[in-house]
Design a binder for these strands. Structure first.
Lengths: 211, 211
DNA sequence: GCGTAACCCTACGCACGAGTAGGTATGCTC
DNA sequence: GAGCATACCTACTCGTGCGTAGGGTTACGC
């Protein structure tokens, strides 16, 4: 019975990506616990033991998802903001790349991210990623400060960077929940808050992208 | 055998609070799914059926936790920021109250909050709470804007408010993870970012509480 | 053309934990 | 001090879903 094998045999690398795609989709819809390995397998068009053979247990599978999406995001940002530009330009480029990425991976990213926060085993993984981001932002601010001959304590720097990253994550969530919203516009608004602050905005000062 | 009943019989209202205390503790340690009703019951010093009798299913119990902690927080904030003060003062008072609350309820609040984000059934409940906060902040900004004869679109307003709330939540998480940190100081730093923005900070402008 | 490795399946075992049945004891009311 | 409501328990049932045992089939090297 070699006529039509209904669905083709595929090499491991391809199947793994299909599985990860399915996993991201299901995890984001249902959440880590409510997602079942059966549903993920079915969605990937494969049977459950294959998932176990290739990607391991449910936890390992989730970590693999986190990893793939995380690296993709980091690359998108890193590729956008060259380190020799002035702080505001770097911030703007980074924000634009970030919101662009989230806009393109709406349900995937945002919900994976939302998931990982809650579950102990993955919170660490996530925290590491966030820490890297915070360090980049803090480094950028520090660099700009030194250029002006100024300096603030490391902890002040960290907290400010943390707040900026937090605000950005929040708007990413907002963006993920508003499919009609425009990533670029959202990035601009974020830039306004981050760079100028509410006080400036109240006085009619606004920031606009130039180039 | 009426000598020493080992542990006393207590009225419903008291036991309910004990159960809620235990539930908050266990939910925050383990996360919603990993937490077991048995552990919560044991921690409350009572047997499982009592929990079901008083607070209902696991989901209902979690909602009850969310509700209690949420109301407490809202009250703490609402009591601090009178609506007839200028925007910056209101913002400052609100932030101080908020971080004070989180500092006092560290593991309780922060992790409950982190939990609720991920799980579908409760994300709504949480979103409602956040929306109320966003509306308050947006209303405050709008009020201040009109006072200056200025105006921006509703969506701009919402997004700015959303970003501020997000940044604040993030710093609350940070505070919950850093037991040595000072709530008041954290509030001040948040105020600086929110009110002045990174740009102003870079130029040496800082905000300090006055009173 | 034949061995072997890679791909893929249909079942199942089994633990864990939500929720309940059914019963006991204590205090409060009249 | 009888009756009743309320506080409280031990010991179960039962669904759900992770992870696996064991076996089939296609392609590729030689």
């Amino acid at each position: 019975m070699s006529t039509v094998p209904a669905f083709k045999r595929l090499p491991r690398a391809v199947r793994e990506q299909q599985m990860l795609d399915a996993a991201v989709k299901v995890f984001s819809r249902r959440g880590f616990h409510a997602a079942s390995m059966d549903e993920i397998a079915e969605d990937a068009g494969i049977s459950k033991p294959m998932v176990y053979a290739y990607l391991g247990t449910k936890e390992e599978l989730f970590v693999a998802c986190l990893h793939r999406e995380g690296t993709r995001m980091m690359q998108a940002i890193a590729g956008a903001a060259a380190p020799d530009l002035p702080a505001d330009v770097r911030l703007w480029r980074g924000l634009r790349a970030f919101f662009g990425f989230v806009g393109a991976h709406r349900d995937g990213w945002a919900v994976l991210y939302r998931q990982a926060r809650g579950e102990q085993p993955f919170a660490g993984e996530l925290a590491t990623m966030r820490t890297r981001l915070v360090e980049v932002v803090a480094g950028m601010l520090d660099h700009a400060l030194r250029a002006e001959g100024r300096e603030i304590t490391a902890i002040d720097l960290e907290v400010v960077a943390y707040a900026l990253v937090g605000a950005t994550e929040s708007l990413a969530d907002w963006l993920a929940d508003h499919p009609e919203a425009d990533p670029e516009k959202t990035a601009t608004r974020m830039m306004n808050v981050a760079w100028l602050g509410a006080g400036q905005l109240l006085h009619g000062v606004t920031w606009r992208p130039q180039e």
